[in-house]
């Protein structure tokens, strides 16, 4: 029954999430990112730190993760840094807008392969990448936090649906041993 493809799905506690929109190539951008200890991630890349991760979302959009307790201050600092630099940018606390899940184990790639139209082979996706896509019928983003583990975020209102999808897909990988 493909026991060796066991997959664990865990709903994670909320963390701090900050949305940054702006010209990421601008002069002020490195300083702004350094407030949270990040540099600019490359296209479709994630930079991970102890406290969280900086996710590339689009050419003018990043999502910055941090500990839940430090988000309020980080937003204030970033907003005032923008004002000082007269930067045209949007910084918003979106910590409450999304739910987080960890998918881990030897069957983690397979689990997401059942729900997302993304090449999740080792050749197609690996640590350091982030992908915004859909999971079944709703939007999501995921990245790898280890060789066999993913973190996935989705909108808060559909967290029960997404959790159901993940648990359902993780249940049995029978017949997929060869992948």
């Amino acid at each position: 029954m493909a026991e060796h493809l066991h997959t664990e799905v865990t709903a994670l506690e909320p963390c701090g999430m900050i949305l940054l929109r702006g010209d990421l190539e601008a002069e002020w951008a490195p300083d702004l990112l350094s407030i949270m200890g990040y540099s600019l991630p490359e296209q479709r890349q994630v930079i991970q730190s102890e406290a969280g991760a900086a996710l590339w979302f689009s050419p003018d959009e990043l999502m910055l993760l941090c500990e839940a307790g430090s988000v309020a201050e980080a937003v204030v600092q970033m907003q005032s840094a923008c004002r000082e630099a007269q930067a045209h940018a949007l910084v918003a606390d979106i910590s409450d807008a999304r739910a987080r899940f960890a998918i881990s184990g030897p069957g983690a790639r397979l689990t997401l392969s059942k729900l997302c139209p993304v090449d999740l082979s080792e050749a197609g996706f690996g640590p350091g990448h982030v992908r915004r896509t859909r999971i079944a019928q709703v939007a999501c983003a995921f990245w790898m936090t280890g060789p066999e583990s993913f973190e996935l975020i989705c909108f808060r209102s559909v967290s029960e649906y997404v959790e159901g999808l993940l648990r359902n897909a993780a249940r049995s990988h029978m017949g997929l041993e060869m992948l």
């Binding site: 929109r21 045209h88 949007l90 918003a92 979106i94 409450d96 807008a97 999304r98 209102s157």
Partner: peptide, 9 residues
């Protein structure tokens, strides 16, 4: 810039 904050609140 726009941001859809519907689910934040």
């Amino acid at each position: 810039y726009t941001a859809n904050l519907t689910e934040q609140y």
